[in-house]
Simulated scan of single mutants.
Amino acid sequence: MSKLLSLILLCTACLLTTAATASDKNAELVRQVMQTEAAFAKTMEARDHQAFSEFLAEETIFFSSKKVLHGKQEVATAWKRFYEGASAPFSWAPETVEVLESGKLALSSGPVRDPQGKLVATFTSIWRQESPGVWRIVFDKGNDVCDCNKP
């Protein structure tokens, strides 16, 4: 085998290994965000407002139907009403997660359901990795589902 061909094969093997390593890293980050979003959603089912608050970044922004909520304290205060009572008024679950190649930001989205399981909205959240394996939500926006059967 010529030296040039050997060098080309070696470079190709290095590139494939690097791509696989980057892909593995991204898959691990996607898994982390998926688990974080699922744990965030579990706070509603568990009726644990304090745990909900721990997922919020200090500078988080939540879009609500009435106004934009700025900061961890304002969001936590506004959402406290959803955690009152014996049963959750809604639930959500991640379906899609994408993570930037840098691993610093991620987007999660999925359905929001009423207590009977009916799809009523979708959510989109942006997460920031604050330290290895620790993700905090920085933006959240829900959108009502269109009832296309209405006249």
Rank of each mutant, 00 (worst) to 15 (best):
W79P: 00
P132G: 08
H49N: 06
C14K: 00
K25C: 01
V134T: 15
D144F: 09
Q50A: 15
D48I: 09
A41I: 05
A27T: 06
V97Y: 07
K72T: 04
E130P: 00
K72S: 13
A51S: 14
K118Y: 04
E54Y: 03
R31M: 05
A78L: 01
V134G: 02
G133A: 12
L4Q: 12
Q116T: 13
A51G: 07
D114M: 05
T21W: 15
L5I: 06
G142N: 12
I126G: 00
Q129C: 09
I137F: 02
L10Q: 08
R47L: 07
D48K: 10
G85K: 11
V99M: 07
G110I: 01
W79D: 07
K104M: 12
P111T: 02
F123D: 04
T17K: 08
A57E: 09
E84V: 05
E45I: 13
P132W: 11
D24F: 15
S109Q: 12
K25D: 13
G103T: 07
T12H: 05
L16H: 04
A46M: 14
S6K: 15
E130F: 10
A78M: 04
T18L: 14
C14M: 14
K104N: 12
L10V: 14
V99D: 01
D24L: 12
A51Y: 09
F139I: 04
D24I: 07
Q73Y: 04
G110S: 03
D147F: 08
D140E: 12
E95V: 02
F55A: 01
I61C: 07
A51L: 10
A22L: 15
S109E: 09
